[in-house]
Nucleic acid binder design. Structure first.
Lengths: 230, 230
DNA sequence: ATAAAAATTGTCTAAAAAACACTTATTTAA
DNA sequence: TTAAATAAGTGTTTTTTAGACAATTTTTAT
């Protein structure tokens, strides 16, 4: 029956690096742990993989507990498995990153947890190897977004081109030429211009766009080269 | 002390998708299991992560047991965690892929295991979800090699340009224009022409090249676009 | 009416990719 | 020795894409 009886079983966790955008800057959703060990320390949201769950399911559950969100863009990133990464007991952690439009769920953040959006540029010291996870996630996000249109997952359903520009500039910490960016973006065929404008951020107002979901599904896995020399 | 006492521990394994090239076609290193369960079935090489090991260490150990090889190009791919993927007992598997020059190690394959190089186009039914792992690895290899010069890991120290061309054509199952490919390859500055020629494959003979290790380290993570519309 | 602020639009230049075919070196067979 | 066969090696033109660069439009506030 149990053919693997001599093997050691290990704790398996998931940790979620949750990126959010509020129209101005990129942020990470962090929690202040309300319990020992490492009480009051800042941390990524995580949890253990339960017997009936896939790691993906576990990550989705963890995300839902914290944010109330389901069906969010989430991708498996990397396994962190240093034997001593968790000082309490050896735990292998599968890291996921998620992309969220902050405004859409501002009031849904579970009050059970002390969760907070923190600017990506001001991340505090986190527990265990979580800072390293965040660095890896930033790198992976930059890599992926340079080639695939995933950053739209951070925006509301209707968005403007200046908003996307700000987002890309934030993710890569660069300044882009808006004329060239505009042309490149529209040439993908991903965007559909709406008739109304966003008048909140300028006098003239900027046209809203929506994603063309058909084209989006096709192009999510093709190479689009949004960023020069990524 | 044990703060996580209520959590379930799981078996954690590594499985290696080992790609090899012999100058003609891409192959995978598979083993025929010599023990139950699934005795005599074809399988990837795998093993359990031991208490003192990182998953990377475990994957390297497994690779060494099978091939005698160390310091091989190996990359973490993806976690496979379906609760029922292993019918004996729940096991989470971290999949790695490795790239090897077949000829270099032809005679080193451990006789302890019944290992065999099988053409990538004729992979038999494998145990568990190993066929799915292979598919994911093929996809990942294609993705990565389209942008980064990793396929050199499949070639001997000295190689010819026609050999590389064959390799790329094999990986992507396409025909490339040798003039354009040649120019693109040489323009990377990755190759150093040797004075001698390989006279085995043609009358005229093809110049040997070696990797410029300095340039290689710099460019392994930059985007090179070897393949049109990958 | 005018100034201010941000959105929108277009052209020209440079670089990279793609299409395309002939020449060279060598061996082998007539 | 000469000719045929084989694969390696090399250049040019065209097309496409990326990059640099500035003026105009729309609306609100003074």
């Amino acid at each position: 029956m149990t053919k693997y009886s001599k093997q050691t079983r290990l704790l398996v966790a998931v940790d979620c690096i949750i990126f959010g955008f509020d129209g101005e800057s990129l942020k990470l959703l962090l929690i202040q742990r309300g319990f020992e060990p490492e009480k009051n320390k800042w941390s990524l949201m995580g949890g253990f993989v339960e017997p009936s769950e896939t790691p993906e399911t576990a990550a989705a559950r963890v995300l839902k507990q914290l944010t109330g969100l389901e069906h969010v863009y989430m991708e498996q990133m990397e396994v962190f498995g240093e034997p001593n990464r968790d000082p309490i007991e050896r735990t292998i952690s599968i890291a996921y990153y998620a992309l969220i439009d902050i405004r859409k769920y501002k009031d849904q953040l579970s009050k059970e947890y002390r969760a907070e959006w923190m600017p990506l540029k001001e991340i505090p010291k986190l527990i265990f190897d979580h800072n390293s996870m965040v660095e890896h996630a930033k790198k992976k996000l930059r890599y992926k977004a340079a080639l695939h249109p995933i950053l739209f997952e951070l925006l509301p359903e209707k968005f403007t081109i200046p908003q996307i520009l700000t987002l890309y500039e934030g993710v890569y910490d660069i300044v882009l030429d808006k004329r060239n960016f505009n042309r490149k973006l529209l040439s993908t065929g991903l965007l559909v211009r709406q008739k109304d404008k966003d008048k909140e951020n300028s006098k003239k107002g900027a046209f809203y766009y929506k994603l063309n979901k058909e084209t989006y599904k096709d192009k999510i896995s093709s190479f689009l080269n949004f960023i020069p020399n990524p």
